[in-house]
Amino acid sequence: MLPESERALDTARAAARCLRLGLETRGHEAIARLADELDRIPCTRGAPIDAAVLDAILARIVAAQERGDPLGLADLLEHELGPAFGRRIPGRS
C-alpha cells in the first residue's frame, strides 16, 4: 500500500476513535484532514483503489456527518474505508 494511503487510513482510524469516545470536534477535524490526504493519493501510481467504491463510501461519510451520526460515521471510517484500499477488515473473512 502506498504511504499516502497508509497515512489516510491512520487518520481515518484516529477520527473513528475520537468519534467513539465522544470527542466530536477532534473527530471532525481529523475527517477534514483525511479529505486533504485522500486528495493527495496519486491514483495513477497503481494504488489498489476502486474509485467508484471510494466515492460511494465518501458519499455515505458525508451523509453520516450531515445527520450527526457519530458511530455510523466511525464504522464507515474504520470498517468500510479500509477495504476500498484493498485492506481486509480485521475479524472478517
Partner: peptide, 14 residues
C-alpha cells in the same frame, strides 16, 4: 432518527 446507537461491527471493542 438516523443515528446508530452503537458501532455495528465491534460494539464490545467500542
Amino acid at each position: 432518527d438516523g443515528v446508530q446507537l452503537a458501532g455495528a461491527f465491534d460494539p464490545r471493542a467500542e
